[in-house]
């Protein structure tokens, strides 16, 4: 068995694959680096699949917490792991938009799933999952409810500020002025999409485009992103665990070769 672990800033993910590259199990826990989530995700996955740790031939860790995660054979950046994961889930993908808790990345890949180029958010949390978390809190809903809420929007509110803190005050004043929460939710999605689209265009968008990371679970967010880029966007079956899947594939590839 081969294990891939992805320790993000707000969640931890793990994927097990067999020697044929088939997924044996996958798990995501909404607790990231520096928490018990990082350790428990691997444990939970092994318990769920009935696989013993000693049956894991090689393990690769990725993500923001990769440097401090013990017990893996190799660490690889989330940039390369997302590229590898998407390459296996959605072959033919050339551009990946990955929006996680504190990062937004655009990754260009070649036909072999290798990273050609990438861009990441700069200096602040604008355009990341954290921005949406803050928006959900202001709107009084759970992060998982944003998609359905934004889907009802008839009159989208424009959020001008890209700064998360300033956008929070902007949203509060718009709600106070009578804006509907679904219109503000859609505005938050568009704000993230616009910010990330700027980065995508800088790197250059080549179809097919896929979206990964926890934020890709939000279907309306994917819709906003596709509209901002004017291209269709595919989402893999389990977008949140794509980095861990890529790590598992690296584990399979590197086993016996290092």
């Amino acid at each position: 068995m081969f294990l891939g672990v992805d320790i993000g800033s707000s969640s931890s993910k793990a994927v097990l694959i067999n020697p044929l590259g088939e997924i044996v199990g996958q798990k995501a826990i909404q607790m990231g680096t520096g928490t018990v989530g990082a350790k428990s995700v691997e444990q939970a996955l092994l318990e769920e699949t009935g696989v013993k740790r000693s049956d894991v031939l090689f393990a690769v860790v990725t993500g923001y917490g990769r440097m401090t995660y013990p017990g893996c054979d190799l660490q690889i950046t989330e940039i390369s792991c997302h590229a590898a994961g998407v390459c296996f889930s959605l072959p033919g993908t050339r551009t990946i938009v990955d929006i996680g808790g504190q990062d937004a990345k655009v990754i260009r890949v070649d036909q072999a799933g290798r990273v050609v180029n990438f861009g990441m958010n700069e200096k602040c949390a604008a355009g990341t999952g954290r921005f949406l978390e803050v928006m959900a809190r202001v709107l009084g809903c759970r992060i998982g409810e944003l998609s359905a809420l934004a889907g009802k929007s008839q009159n989208t509110v424009k959020i001008s500020s890209v700064c998360t803190v300033f956008a929070e005050s902007e949203v509060i004043s718009q709600l106070a002025a009578g804006a509907k929460i679904e219109d503000v939710a859609k505005g938050a999605h568009n704000s993230v999409a616009t910010r990330v689209a700027g980065m995508c265009n800088r790197i250059g968008v080549e179809e097919a485009v896929a979206m990964t990371g926890g934020v890709a679970l939000n279907q309306d967010m994917v819709k906003s992103m596709a509209a901002a880029l004017s291209v269709p966007i595919c989402v893999p079956e389990s977008p949140q665990t794509i980095g861990a899947l890529g790590a598992a594939h690296f584990a399979r590839e590197k086993y016996g070769r290092l």
């Binding site: 923001y64 440097m67 690889i76 950046t77 989330e78 940039i79 390369s80 070649d110 290798r114 990273v115 050609v116 180029n117 990438f118 990441m120 200096k123």
Partner: peptide
Amino acid sequence: STFSLAQYETRIQALVEMMEGNRQR
């Protein structure tokens, strides 16, 4: 105040992975 070592580390490592990809090619 504008520098993050963890972010720098990830970017530099990703550069290595890309340069290695170039060599493989």
